[in-house]
Design a protein around this nucleic acid. Sequence first.
DNA 1: TATAAACCCGACTAAAATAGTCAAGTATCT
DNA 2: AGATACTTGACTATTTTAGTCGGGTTTATA
Lengths: 141, 141
Amino acid sequence: MKLTSKGRYAVMALADLARFNNINPVSLRDISLRQGISLDYLEQIFFKLRKKEIVQSVRGNQGGYVLNKKAKEIKLTNIFDAVDEKVKTVQCKKESKKSCNGKSTKCLTHNLWDELENHINDFFEKKSLEDLIKDNSERRI
Amino acid sequence: MKLTSKGRYAVMALADLARFNNINPVSLRDISLRQGISLDYLEQIFFKLRKKEIVQSVRGNQGGYVLNKKAKEIKLTNIFDAVDEKVKTVQCKKESKKSCNGKSTKCLTHNLWDELENHINDFFEKKSLEDLIKDNSERRI
DNA sequence: TATAAACCCGACTAAAATAGTCAAGTATCT
DNA sequence: AGATACTTGACTATTTTAGTCGGGTTTATA
Ligand code: FES
Ligand code: FES
């Protein structure tokens, strides 16, 4: 059960962006250097974040990205959703009546995995970008 | 972020075992048929479960496996630990002072991932095999 | 005591997912 | 004009996962 780099990077990059989100847009080059993430990979990630309207792009020289909403309104859920980082605990189709092993009733553990999925998603639902940078600056005092 | 089959199968198989854990040992063949899990794969999994003393084996004809502890005392944590299903949210070494990007201080998101890891592990710590089968038989009434 | 059922254990492999790279653009500031 | 930076799709190497395979050993029971 592990978090993929794509999801981790997306959050890291947005935390960086939120932190340096002044008047000027932040370039991916800067984020790449500060966070140690491949520029090409970041571009893929921000392409998705832009499509989901989490960030806005400013093209051209001196361009970059800015947050499209307040940090408080961007939940981890939104970020993970944008980059297709899903929490998946079961193989069986949620909607279909077929169980994971092809039988017609849900298997013994189906409810457990459902609970687990909800438990994890709750965490993502509760955390916003703002929590992240606030939390961090407090610790630096 | 997804659960691997190995972990899922381990729990499914033990739930099955707990359910049919009467006087006679339960053969992997039976579990394989009931749960639709490859027999060869189950053998790998039970090899590990036995090494961690979660199950006991009974060799020979009419043999199989039995639980080595009460269902109440087997937590999901123990099961996942036995089959090396770990919750991993960070790339950086926990103990080392190096961050994920090679710098000397922890990155902006390090604490977040730590919290997430604890949040998930809490769930595994709280659930026992007994909860699983009790929960399930209640629903069948 | 022969046989079949079942566990034991290491090695190998196919498929899928991940984590990127590469290339060829377009827009905008100075 | 030139540099910087976003845009987009396609491609690829690496790693992980989810098995398979093969050759054991042990033990109940016919
Ligand atoms: S996990 Fe849904 S039926 Fe087994
Ligand atoms: S996740 Fe630990 S330093 Fe970045």
